[in-house]
Nucleic acid binder design. Structure first.
Lengths: 201, 201
DNA sequence: ACGCGGATCTGACAGATGTCATGGGGGATC
DNA sequence: GATCCCCCATGACATCTGTCAGATCCGCGT
């Protein structure tokens, strides 16, 4: 019997996934979590065979939660289940210690299969995603460039960004400029979109 | 027996919802669709009692699909099930003829209840969402302002937008300026974010 | 010790952006 | 018919943005 932990912030989706996996004769959902922090706590407490984590979660990202679980409950195998197949997500998830990566628009039957393979100790990756991940390479952005881009996402002005990051306005513009160059964009908005799409933020 | 049509573009989520609703003794999923156009076709063909539609779908939005179903198969009752409780979404969905609106982070048990009530002829709304919808009022944007903002979302320049909409650059800047004013934003990016968040795009 | 790259800053410049005043044309409303 | 709003446009202005050239500091590897 494979014991599962399910972490997903959308209540209805979580319940639906629980129902879906509950139909499998060899699986049982032993715990559910609505955010990354809850997921870590539950992983420590219930020691499931497989932890199924969404990436886009409040409080603690699925990726950060993966790293935490890796530290606090190393025998728990983490399978990432997320909406977006961003190359950067895959890479960071695997670096954090995930054992598999499934996107939410894969066929429903694949999920149970992935869970079984991860439980058996295999690494499970969508091959086309893996190709995209290796093709686009790691993030070319430095830490500061990432900070600045992230702060610029919502439409903040240079002055705003400078204030929140405690930098001079000129420095912020320099970072923005180099981030724009590295993403081959034509302004900060496009740069943020591209970086986001690649999972670099 | 309540006959259901399920339209949701993420395969895994669709399968999971199908599993969840399949557990209910008085419901059966008679058709599934991966985009809005498929949903309309399936609604016409299978004439389900209730059509469960996501809003964020390719080809045809859940809202557009609602209007189409209303025309082509008026006896089918549409229940919108979507990720974001944007006030503008609710309003437009109801205007298009939806009979209910449920957000994906509602408790899982609520979904089956909502389906039953819609099947029985009731209108089902999340009360707090309804309040937000009435509170924020309808979209203050004109058609053109919406077009321009939408075109600007990805970081396009004024010249790009002017080219795609066949307008003069000055006109584009005027529309952007008035959209920025109406959304109380400080630049186009923030305006697009706010409009998007309210479901005005 | 030396060089390299990242983080931080400044100053200057061209071009993009946001604002405003102003105009004409068309449809809806009163 | 007058009024209002939306569509479309132009020109001028102040500000914001993106780029580039330089400059200092620090840590890391050879």
């Amino acid at each position: 019997m494979i014991r599962l932990l399910l972490a997903e912030d959308q209540h209805l989706v979580r319940g639906a996934l629980s129902a879906l996996l509950g139909l499998e004769a060899d699986m049982t959902v032993v715990a559910e979590a609505a955010d990354g922090a809850e997921a870590v706590t539950a992983a420590v407490e219930y020691r499931p065979d497989v932890a199924l984590l969404d990436i886009e979660m409040p409080v603690l990202t699925g990726i950060d939660a993966t790293a935490e679980i890796r530290r606090a409950a190393p025998e728990v195998r983490v399978l990432i289940l997320t909406t977006f197949g961003r190359p950067g997500y895959l890479r960071r998830a695997m670096d954090a210690g995930a054992r598999g990566f499934v996107v939410k628009d894969a066929p429903a039957a694949d999920l149970a299969a992935a869970v079984r393979r991860v439980a058996a100790g295999e690494i499970v990756l969508d091959p086309s995603l893996a190709v995209a991940s290796l093709g686009s390479g790691p993030s070319p952005l430095t830490d500061r460039e990432r900070d600045v881009l992230r702060a610029a996402e919502g439409g903040a002005s240079v002055a705003d960004i400078a204030a929140t990051l405690a930098l001079s306005a000129g420095t912020v513009r320099n970072y923005l400029s180099s981030a724009i160059g590295k993403t081959a964009a034509r302004n900060r908005t496009e740069a943020a979109r591209i970086a986001h799409h690649n999972g670099w933020l």
